[in-house]
Amino acid sequence: MTLDVRDIVLGYENTPVIRGLSFHLAEGEIGCLLGASGCGKTTALRAIAGFEAITEGEIHVGGKLVSSPNKRVAPEKRNVGMVFQDNALFPHLDVAGNIAFGLRRLASAERERRIRQLLDLTGLTGLDRRYPHELSGGQQQRVALARALAPEPSVLLMDEPFSNLDTRLRRRMGEEIRGMLKARGTTTLLVTHDQQEAFALADRIGLLKDGRMLQWDSPYQLYHRPASRYVAAFTGRGSYLKAHIEGDRLVHALGDSELPDERPPGEEVALLIRPDDIRPDPGGTHARVVARQFQGADILYRLRLDSGEEVSALFPSHDDFEVNSAIGVELDAQHLVLFPADQPSAPSALSSHGAH
């Protein structure tokens, strides 16, 4: 089923929380609302689930209107599944009982068939008689997913689904759950503050700030062609070089490049440099290693150019350079991203999201 959110507005006590939010998910797509705490992403999810009323706009599930200022279909009648942040499993029910909770109207044989199918899908076969307290965090997350999928919802909503798991388990669960959802063709929307989680799970990501959608795009486009410096900072590490236009060339401290679009001669701009946009080149631009961070397969370097500007660079770990050594580098960017020279950078608080 499709999910359409069209220019919705809502707030509390005359304070707007969501301001004209719009996006579309095709059948079987996985979408993500990404943003810092307080940006409105969970409120938007609750509105889609039917827990919050909207004052403007419309929400459609599978082509059917479920929310508008004059209409609000009850949550239980939307055919929307929900996985909550804390899993919200019933402690007095075993795994099979939790999965079966929304299947009470089915005939016994069909209910058992669906439980077995979901136990197999989520890797819980053999654990059906265990209780939540007897399961690991990852197993509890799978039970919550199976319970939400059991009634075969048109759309599945997930609220910070991996926030209670450690980093390694979050990555593994992200891969597993994406595979499960794609196998079933379930249209899904999750919310998270974690850029890596969003990239790993979603086909489409919307970055929210102050209740507004800054960009709704594929993970690739969001990272390589961000619409603003805020988007660039939230979706990954980046540095900026001063640059200006000379004819049809862009001149900067790493040399000069072909202009990505038409711009007036002499215009001053800021060139976004991602760590993977730079590679070592003995005959390239001179740089000095200021700092390095070994990351196993890669090493993240901080390099100072002759202009005094600094950039981050991510090299394979066999390109091993010591701090204070002089090296040559070249720009190897597939997409040059330019911003106005005076556009403000994102707040430093974002570094925790974008520094991975």
Results as ranks from 00 to 15, higher is better:
I8K: 10
V9I: 12
V9T: 10
P16C: 06
I18T: 13
H24T: 13
L25R: 02
A26E: 15
E29R: 05
S37G: 06
T43L: 12
A44L: 07
L45K: 08
A49Q: 08
E52M: 09
V61I: 15
V66T: 09
S67H: 07
S67F: 05
P69Q: 06
K71P: 00
G81H: 01
F84Y: 11
A88W: 05
L89Q: 02
P91V: 04
R104P: 13
R104E: 14
R105Y: 12
L106F: 13
S108R: 15
R113S: 15
R114P: 11
Q117F: 14
L119W: 07
L121V: 12
L127G: 03
D128C: 02
R130L: 14
Y131Q: 12
H133C: 12
G137Q: 03
L145Q: 01
A146T: 06
A146F: 07
A148D: 03
S154E: 14
L157M: 10
D159N: 09
P161W: 02
P161T: 06
S163Q: 03
N164F: 02
D166T: 01
D166E: 06
T167N: 09
T167C: 06
R168F: 00
R168S: 13
R170F: 01
M173L: 15
E176I: 05
G179T: 14
K182I: 08
T188M: 10
L190F: 15
V191K: 07
T192F: 02
D194K: 01
F199V: 08
A200S: 10
L201G: 01
R212T: 14
M213Q: 08
W216N: 10
D217R: 09
P219C: 05
L222Q: 10
Y223E: 02
H224W: 13
V231D: 04
A232Q: 02
A233I: 04
L250E: 08
L254N: 05
D256E: 15
P265T: 06
G266N: 04
E267K: 13
D276Q: 15
T285H: 00
H286D: 12
G296Y: 05
A297K: 04
R302K: 14
S307A: 09
G308A: 00
E309C: 08
E309D: 05
L314T: 01
S317P: 04
F321V: 02
I327L: 10
G328S: 07
A341G: 11
Q343V: 01
P344E: 10
S345A: 12
A346L: 09
H356R: 14
